[in-house]
Every structure is written in structure tokens, then in C-alpha cells.
Amino acid sequence: MSDEKERAELLAALHAAGAASEEDEKELQALLEADPSLQEVVRDFQDSIAALASSFEPLETSPKTLGQIQKQIAREKGGFLSRLRSWFSKS
């Protein structure tokens, strides 16, 4: 593997693991702009660490929680956030 590819893979790994510094992140963004295929490496690493993070024994949630989430969303719908969501979905 070339030094550049090795460096790009290292930056992708640090990013996915949450260990990248600000400089690392900037360098990775620049490399991603120059070579969009690097996104696949980032994605693979992110999926791998997400699998690790989702491997714990699932826990039963409180029956109240979903209702509280729905109430909060209902409050937000129709307000400023609704307009913001609409803007995001168009952009």
C-alpha cells in the first residue's frame, strides 16, 4: 500500500473511532474532496465501529419514553423546527 493510501486509511480510521484531531479532520476532508472513493473506506470503518457499539445486550425501554418523544415532536412540529426541516429537505 502506498504511503498516501496508508495515510488516508489511518485518517479514516481515526475519524470513525472518534480519535481524530481537528487537523486530522481537515486533512481527511481535503482528501475526500480530492478522492471521493475514500468515502467507502470511511463508511466501512463507521459501519464496523457501529456494529461494535450496537453489540451490547439490548435493554427494554420504559413504556413512557416513546410517548414523551412523540409529545416533544408534536410540540416542535408547526414551529420553527418544522420550517427548518422543510428547508433541509429541499436543500
Binding site: 463507521q46 457501529a50 456494529a51 450496537s54 419514553t65 414523551q68
Partner: peptide, 30 residues
């Protein structure tokens, strides 16, 4: 449990920004 609530409200807010070409849903959630 408190943070769980915040997480799902945030996921709902951010749903328009989710881009499947950039990662799986589970990776986004996590």
C-alpha cells in the same frame, strides 16, 4: 433513559439530512 429521549427527537429532526450513500442507518443512529 433521558438521553434516549433526546436521541430519538434529534434523529427525527435530522432525518432530512440522512444520506444513505454516506453510511448505514444503524451507523447514523449510533
Amino acid at each position: 433513559e433521558d438521553i434516549l429521549q433526546e436521541v430519538f427527537v434529534e434523529l427525527w429532526r435530522r432525518a432530512p439530512q440522512y444520506d444513505s450513500s454516506r453510511g448505514s442507518v444503524v451507523a447514523w443512529v449510533v
